[in-house]
């Protein structure tokens, strides 16, 4: 999982996404919303300064499309 220092992996599943746009609204440095409405990842790992924003995005995502995984090199 993500640590306060960042470094966790961001996971976004377009098959699950319902295009609410909440992630891109609260963490615009990490998530974008494509023209078709679905989530697009702008980075692979959680930037150190964006941990709270990413956690907020994960919490708000209505469909569970946005999640956190282990840091790069981990089991994911």
């Amino acid at each position: 999982m993500v640590s306060a220092a960042g470094g966790g992996r961001v996971l976004a599943d377009q098959d699950v996404c319902v295009g609410a746009g909440q992630c891109a609204r609260v963490a615009p440095g990490v998530f974008d919303q494509a023209d078709d409405g679905l989530v697009v990842l702008l980075v692979r790992d959680v930037p150190a300064g964006e941990v709270d924003a990413v956690l907020d995005a994960v919490d708000r995502c209505p469909s569970g499309a946005v999640r956190l995984g282990a840091p790069a090199g981990g089991p994911y």
Partner: peptide, 15 residues
């Protein structure tokens, strides 16, 4: 639901 919603979400993106 998914099929219809996906026809509409692009019309209401943040951008």
């Amino acid at each position: 639901h998914t099929q219809v919603r996906r026809m509409l979400v692009g019309e209401f993106t943040l951008r």
